[in-house]
């Protein structure tokens, strides 16, 4: 357990150091390149690109969470039941749409830049959260809902005090999956001129600059792993806290 925390800390420190002083790493990356080719990406400031990348992901995931959870609540209510089979199928079919397709199709409507990327991240991020929320809300043991009804809770009380807390672990997992997918899709957003870390990889691919590819890819990869890890830890902390209060 302690080793895990040590690795975590080292990776975060390494990430920050690389973003703050990328030139320190130039010597490590130099052997990858032909002579005289630039080693560190300078057409954009790396920490700024990282910040934009993270902002895009965070905004899209937040918006997707709000919309997906609201929709999932609506289709699991009595009056929305008719939409449940359809919405499940749509979520299922939606997941067969490749992220690149969503991104490419958003461009004719919204033009190039961050806007189509944000829309694609949002649309694609909806599905895992929606699916997990629906699963969480529909798999609550009947005895629990009966008990909640039995103690005279209103529909709103049942939703907020019983159903949502019970579904919370699954919802959080959905949000984590969605965030990690968004982080990866944002990288591809650079093919439609969104300023993200994907820009570094694509610049490397276009100019055959291996150092660019490796630093961009490593940066995105480490970021994705750290965020995945951070959200997993947060989930566990939430579960522990909730579990403790439930037994108290």
């Amino acid at each position: 357990m302690r080793a895990a925390w040590l690795i975590r800390l080292c990776l975060w420190l390494l990430l920050c150091l690389f973003l703050a002083e990328p030139q320190l790493f130039a010597d490590i990356l130099r052997p990858l390149n032909r002579e005289n080719a630039p080693t560190i990406y300078t057409q954009g400031v790396l920490w700024q690109l990282t910040l934009i990348h993270l902002t895009l992901t965070a905004v899209a995931t937040l918006a997707a969470s709000i919309v997906a959870i609201t929709l999932a609540i609506l289709v699991t209510r009595r009056s929305g039941r008719d939409f449940l089979p359809l919405s499940r199928s749509v979520a299922n079919i939606g997941q067969t749409f490749p992220p690149v397709a969503v991104l490419a199709l958003a461009v004719p409507v919204l033009g190039f830049g961050s806007a189509p990327t944000l829309v694609a991240l949002f649309l694609y991020g909806l599905l895992p959260i929606f699916e997990n929320t629906v699963t969480g809300l529909t798999t609550i043991p009947p005895s629990v809902s009966e008990a909640a009804r039995g103690v005279g809770m209103t529909a709103a009380q049942r939703l907020f005090k019983v159903e949502l807390p019970l579904a919370a672990p699954l919802i959080l997992t959905g949000i984590r999956v969605s965030a990690v997918i968004s982080l990866g899709t944002a990288t591809i957003g650079s093919t439609v001129a969104a300023r993200t870390l994907g820009e570094v990889i694509i610049a490397g691919l276009l100019t055959n600059n291996m150092a660019f590819i490796v630093q961009g890819a490593a940066l995105v990869g480490v970021l994705a792993i750290l965020i995945f890890d951070l959200l997993t830890v947060a989930e566990r902390a939430f579960a522990n806290r909730f579990g403790a209060s439930a037994t108290a």
Binding site: L32, V180, L183, G184, T185, T187, I188, G198, I201, I202, G204, L205, M210, I213, V214, G216, A217, A218, V220, G221, A224, I225, F228
Partner: peptide, 20 residues
């Protein structure tokens, strides 16, 4: 799980170096 977390473009890119 660790491998799956790495974004696709990054993984494609990272494989270029060792393979070449």
């Amino acid at each position: 799980t660790f491998v799956q977390t790495v974004p696709s473009l990054a993984l494609f890119g990272l494989l270029i170096a060792p393979l070449s």
